[in-house]
Design a protein around this nucleic acid. Structure first.
Length: 415
RNA sequence: GGAGAGAUGGCAGAGUGGUCGAAUGCGCUGCCUUGGAAAGGCAGUAUACGGGCAACCGUAUCCGGGGUUCGAAUCCCCGUCUCUCCGCCA
């Protein structure tokens, strides 16, 4: 969430910033709630202070055997006033907290203004696509089955077989090794998390419909960002440990509510997909640099796999709820004849840190850290890209990128 | 699944109705001591919100929620989590 103090003191500039996203901040409501809260809180605390003092007197009178009748009446009076006000105050605090939790992060100054992905800014392109057009991965190999996925689970699930399954596994291993080489600590985490974790990273309360909820009020993770970042929830991290760099390979589960009819063919958009995530937790002044680092780590995986990609910076209307600045990396998908997102690298500034209370102490004062993460990469989509960009229709084979040949024990997949 | 124990500050661990935001130890920070270091001595060291230029003051917080009481870390109820033993099991 946004710092309520900043919001209060710079309400107009916050409102303008959020408007670029298409979020209309009800500033009058906020200020009025805040003023009410402050007024009420002062009154409640005054009463509590009186109550505490009189209670102390009460004890002393009792000890010395004097009458407490007068005091008792006075206390009763204060108490009845207090409880009412306390209830109002806590209701108000909850209302304010909901209000704040609903507001997206402020976008960075250098985020281009725009309303949709059409306004995203092209940053760079790497490699000219060799295969401009190809069959879909589903047509290239019969070792990917959506029918079996459907049989077992429903729509948007897949089953991989044989060398394609092995290629998928090799990609996971390759990517996590790359992350480790880049200084991230490999971490194994739960795939099921609680409400607080999801609130901390910003998925809840607003985006519950995007998640798979279990019957016991836990949720399947939509990304490893959630468990990795929340490892530090409610903690004051030793500043010598910063920057913290973690990676995990996990499946990700997304309900894809609201994407009916979108990307219905193939592995592009499934309820379950694997991803290697890299996360950094840094001091505020280092976060912009860290975003560059994360992005280049994600890019380097594509470069080593010799896949053509481009980098775009998301415009204000396309940046996610919790992020302040985001670069998307898009890989060339020959069957679609266009670039598709394969990684999203974001700086969340102190937004997640404030929600999940991740702080560090410097010069005796506590400060919120900055959190960042990026996919390096989405494995399913990488699999598609490898298959389609290395497909040789004449010879009926898929060339395996050099970097993966060891893990695959082969340099081609015969079809 | 059965039986029991527990949840207190960065950590360990006291505290069973008021003087407790909390002993003590460890850790950490500063100063003294030293040629320098170690050891030792002294002092400081939870979080959030509100007020104040500040020193500082007020309020809340001892897993969460409710209750008893003038007053709760402490007593009662409900919940969550953790641990131990037995059973089962990847």
């Amino acid at each position: 969430m946004i710092d309520p103090k900043i919001l209060k003191e710079n309400i107009q500039s916050c409102k303008d910033n959020l408007a670029k996203r298409g979020y209309s901040l009800d500033d009058e409501k906020f200020l009025s709630l805040e003023n009410q809260r402050k007024d009420l809180q002062t009154r409640v605390e005054d009463l509590q202070s009186q109550k505490n003092k009189l209670s102390k007197n009460f004890g002393e009178l009792k000890k010395s055997g004097q009458s407490t009748d007068v005091l008792a009446l006075e206390l009763e009076e204060i108490k009845s006033q207090t409880t009412d006000l306390e209830k109002t105050l806590s209701a108000l605090q909850i209302e304010i907290s909901f209000f704040l939790m609903d507001i997206p992060n402020l976008i960075s100054e250098d985020t281009p203004t725009g309303t949709s992905e059409d306004d995203n800014k092209l940053i760079e392109e790497y490699l000219k696509p060799q295969v401009l057009k190809s069959d879909s991965h589903l047509d290239i190999t019969d070792q990917i089955s959506l029918e079996l996925g459907n049989k077992l689970s429903g729509s948007r699930f897949s089953v991989l077989k044989g060398n394609v399954a092995k290629l998928h596994r090799s990609l996971c291993t390759y990517m996590i090794n790359q992350a480790i080489n880049n200084g991230y600590e490999e971490t194994y985490v739960p795939y099921i998390v609680n409400y607080d974790a999801l609130e901390g990273t910003g998925q809840l309360p607003k985006f519950e419909e995007d998640l798979f909820k279990l019957s016991n009020d836990q949720y399947l993770i939509p990304t490893a960002e959630v468990p990795l970042t929340n490892l530090f929830r409610d903690q004051i991290v030793d500043q010598d440990l910063l920057p913290i760099k973690l990676t995990a390979h996990t499946p990700c589960f997304r309900s894809e509510a609201g994407s009916y009819g979108k990307d219905t063919n193939g592995l592009i958009r499934l309820h379950q997909f694997d991803k290697v995530e890299i996360v950094q937790i840094v001091k505020p002044q280092d976060s912009d640099k860290a975003l560059g680092e994360i992005t280049s780590h994600a890019k380097s995986v594509l470069e080593k796999l010799e896949l053509p990609y481009r980098v775009v910076q998301l415009c204000s209307g396309d940046v996610g709820f919790s992020a302040s600045k985001t670069f998307d990396i898009e890989v060339w998908m020959p069957s679609q004849e266009k670039y598709r997102e394969i990684s999203s690298c974001s700086n969340f500034s102190d937004f997640q840190a404030r929600r999940s209370k991740i702080r560090f102490k410097e010069n005796g004062k506590n400060h919120f850290v900055h959190t960042l993460n990026g996919s390096a990469l989405a494995v399913g989509r990488t699999l598609i890209a490898v298959i389609e960009n290395n497909f040789n229709k004449k010879l009926k084979l898929i060339n395996i990128p050099k970097e993966l040949q060891n893990l695959m024990d082969a340099d081609i997949i015969e079809l």
